[in-house]
């Protein structure tokens, strides 16, 4: 987005946050503030109206904020800045009964894709994003991005990322599907070998809302504590199966991963298969839970019976 757009949006956001806090509509506003390094931002939690001017919005607000609403809601109503990914995360948590719509106040922001502060290029998660703008909000702080990363005009040269085709969305999956099984195994073994099981993927995921994760359930003993390929493989594959039919494709797990694991390729394989097998809807577009693997229907296939 252009510098002037970013500044205008930042001003609107600060003003709205100050008003909401001053009027007592919300107890806390979750947004972004400037970090220590150029172009770097960090999630901000503002509860004092005087501090609202710390908030910023621009091309480098890389964190998806939805999950933070859970941690803040004990203090009262939470205002959350939402773009496509954040809003779908909120919907996801409402569908999973983790959050009530009344517990959040959503500040809709237009988005034209975020950039990597280190390189200035569009983030991988934004390149394959299908919904840049918020799918639900209480107030919209700027015009929706009709097209393009530059946001301003709707001319034909821009706008690629607004309409990401399924082919673009599943490029990585298709590439891996085409590989020979041995090559595919080698690829994932190499990736899982790097995993340090820091669980940043779990922490950032709006689908991961269990009170005690399966990896910590020692009595059942699903997951060993060893850091080796077998345990890492088990963790990463089980994680995908737990979120597979609910993944909103925000890409936050892959962005948060310090070891660069291709987590979204795994997630999207599930998404793609569920789409073709069950005609599953994209997750998080509404507050309804449409998880394909979590329903019983008289019309379900019973090929095994």
């Amino acid at each position: 987005m252009s510098l002037s757009t970013a500044e205008a949006l930042t001003d609107a956001l600060r003003e709205e946050a100050r008003r909401l806090l001053a009027e007592g509509t919300v107890a806390v506003v979750v947004g972004w503030e400037a970090g220590r390094f150029p172009n770097q931002t960090t999630p901000a939690f503002i509860s004092d109206p005087e501090q609202a001017q710390r908030l910023v919005y621009g091309d480098y607000c890389v964190n998806t904020l939805a999950k933070y609403a859970l941690g803040e809601k004990a203090a009262g109503k939470v205002a959350v800045c939402v773009r496509g990914c954040d809003s779908r995360g909120i919907n996801r948590m409402i569908a999973d009964n983790q959050l009530l719509r009344d517990e959040v106040y959503l500040l809709g922001l237009p988005c034209s894709g975020m950039k990597d502060p280190a390189t200035g290029s569009l983030l991988m998660k934004c390149r394959t994003c299908t919904e840049h703008d918020a799918v639900t909000y209480d107030v919209l702080l700027g015009p929706a991005t009709a097209a393009g990363h530059d946001g301003a005009s709707a001319d034909s040269s821009a706008g690629d990322s607004e309409h990401v085709s399924d082919e673009q969305r599943f490029t990585a999956v298709l590439g891996i599907e085409e590989m020979a099984p041995e090559k595919r195994r080698a690829l994932f073994d190499a990736a899982f070998n790097k995993c340090i099981r820091c669980y940043a993927c779990r922490k950032s995921c709006p689908c991961c809302t269990c009170r005690e994760c399966f990896v910590d359930q020692l009595r059942a003993g699903w997951q060993g504590k060893q850091n080796n390929l077998a345990e890492n493989r088990f963790y990463n594959i089980t994680r995908v199966f737990h979120i597979g039919d609910r993944c909103i494709e925000c890409g936050e797990c892959e962005r948060a991963c310090p070891m660069g694991l291709p987590l979204m390729a795994l997630n999207r394989k599930m998404v793609k298969d569920l789409k073709s097998l069950f005609n599953a809807d994209d997750a998080g577009m509404t507050e309804e839970n449409s998880a394909a693997l979590g329903r019983y229907d008289l019309g379900d296939l019973e090929e095994f019976m």
């Binding site: 999973d96 009964n97 983790q98 809302t209 269990c210 009170r211 005690e212 359930q217 839970n289 998880a291 979590g294 329903r295 019983y296």
Partner: peptide, 21 residues
């Protein structure tokens, strides 16, 4: 109860309407 996060997946999948929140 300690582990249940109330997501309701059990309610939706039960063929006998035996689970409630």
């Amino acid at each position: 109860v300690g582990l249940c996060n109330g997501c309701g997946a059990c309610v939706a999948i039960c063929p006998y309407q035996a689970v409630t929140l």
